Computed example of a mutant assay.
Amino acid sequence: MASAPVRQIAHWAIHSADHGQRGVVVVDKRNARVFVFGPDGRLRGAAPVLLGSAIGDHTVPGVGDKPLWQVLPEERTTPAGRFVAEMGRNAQGEDVVWVDYDAAVSMHRVRPHVQSERRLERLATQTVADNRISFGCINLPVGFYENILSPLVRSAGAVVYVLPETRSAAALFGAYEVPTDPGPDAP
């Protein structure tokens, strides 16, 4: 179920045309979930996500230029804000959806390479506290990335709205309450 801030931002993005006829992706950091909508506002899917291990809504200046081993624990935030998604490749050649290229924040398939991190298990739990593990990237279930997110970004583009944890989403985006229900498939 989508939280009230997710519903408000998705409705507002479609109603105001802030998405510019691209898809709308809303990342709810407080609830560790992502919601993907087509350009018409129809929900395409929702899934749990893994997020930056540090609570916060800002990007530490220069963090995108650091090697991972130099990124301090308090610098591992998933930044809040409005981002125009772009398909691309990371340093390992893996296709990713760039959220903030300069800060090296992307949406990508979950990587379960380090067994002690239990990333797949973390995605499967009902709790939110254990979804904080990444260096700031948004990790998605493989099938969701390959079947929902990536095809949308490739075909229509997308605007990613990462909801803040420390302030109001409406205030961050300048969103307003949509006067009427935008339809049966709205979040």
Rank of each mutant, 00 (worst) to 15 (best):
G157S: 05
I138Q: 05
E177V: 13
V160K: 03
V36G: 04
Y101R: 15
P5S: 08
A171T: 12
T127M: 05
F83L: 06
P182H: 11
R111A: 00
A104I: 05
T180M: 14
K29C: 13
D100A: 12
H108L: 07
I138G: 07
P73M: 04
V99I: 08
A124L: 06
S168I: 12
L123M: 00
Q115S: 14
A169D: 11
F35A: 08
V160M: 06
R33F: 00
E165I: 09
L149C: 02
P179Y: 03
F83E: 05
G20I: 02
H113E: 15
V99T: 10
E74G: 05
V71E: 04
H58S: 11
L123V: 03
R167T: 13
S53P: 00
P5Y: 11
L172W: 05
H58I: 06
D102H: 12
P61A: 09
Y101N: 15
L72K: 14
P151N: 03
Y161I: 00
L140Q: 07
G93I: 08
D95C: 09
P187Y: 15
G183Y: 14
D57P: 12
G81W: 11
V128K: 07
R42S: 07
V6E: 07
V26D: 03
D102Y: 06
F83C: 10
H11Y: 10
V159N: 13
P39V: 07
H108A: 08
A169R: 08
R154G: 12
